[in-house]
Design a protein around this nucleic acid. Structure first.
Lengths: 110, 110
DNA sequence: GCAATACTTAAGTGTCCACTGCACTAACAA
DNA sequence: TTGTTAGTGCAGTGGACACTTAAGTATTGC
């Protein structure tokens, strides 16, 4: 609940990168360890770790370390933040269309 | 309908920038001209135009020029692309939780 | 203990990208 | 026709960012 607004930028920025989207897509099928995540992506393990830090900071991924193995899974909180922002924009826009009728829409006047 | 997948990256990248989000937020209240959009953002008009080109390419904004004035409005297609991607990830993840039970979830094994 | 595994951290590098200034065109106004 | 408004196109710049290499730590297996 706290400062989701501040996170919207981080969430969208995180999802803007194809490698990070691939990570989220992979994780939506189930939890995966860091090195297993890295295998199909053709970048260094260090790069994957950096992406994961960003994904974790934005609330899209949660990780847990047991022994020397870190396991990653999806965190729906980040997805929810993004979804909510989108729905707010859409509903404001559609409410306006309802009020005026699409064909009559005029630019705003100050 | 065609190649929405190719656009996901552009949509999320577009929404990752705070200035572009501010533009979309403004437009969700109704259509606005380019120079009127630029006024509250403290950047040059040229920069705003560049953002608009990107937003239009990603399907988040539609613009129309009449005389010398270009009017911008929200295009829901881009929002829909983003929303759909998010919902797909979430539903895959939640379906998995349903199958296994959250506490039992194990990392994948090849 | 020794080696292998699974990350982790830091520093460096090249590229992309947001922004600027400036020169330009097109439309409207006086 | 002269000036003003509204936007456009482009080269350049500084900073952010994805990625690398390399050196380090902690855990596990033999």
């Amino acid at each position: 609940m706290l400062n989701q607004r501040a996170n919207i930028g981080r969430v969208f920025h995180a999802l803007g990168d194809p490698t990070r989207r691939a990570i989220v897509e992979k994780l939506s099928a189930g939890p995966v360890t860091v090195s297993r995540l890295a295998k199909p992506l053709h970048i260094s393990l260090a790069a994957v770790v950096q992406h994961l830090q960003l994904l974790e900071a934005s609330g899209l991924v949660r990780t847990e370390k047991v022994g020397r193995v870190r396991t990653c899974r999806i965190e729906t909180r980040g997805l929810t933040v993004a979804e909510r922002w989108i729905n707010e924009r859409r509903s404001l826009w559609e409410r306006r269309l309802g009020r005026l009728g699409e064909l009559l829409a005029e630019p705003e006047e100050d």
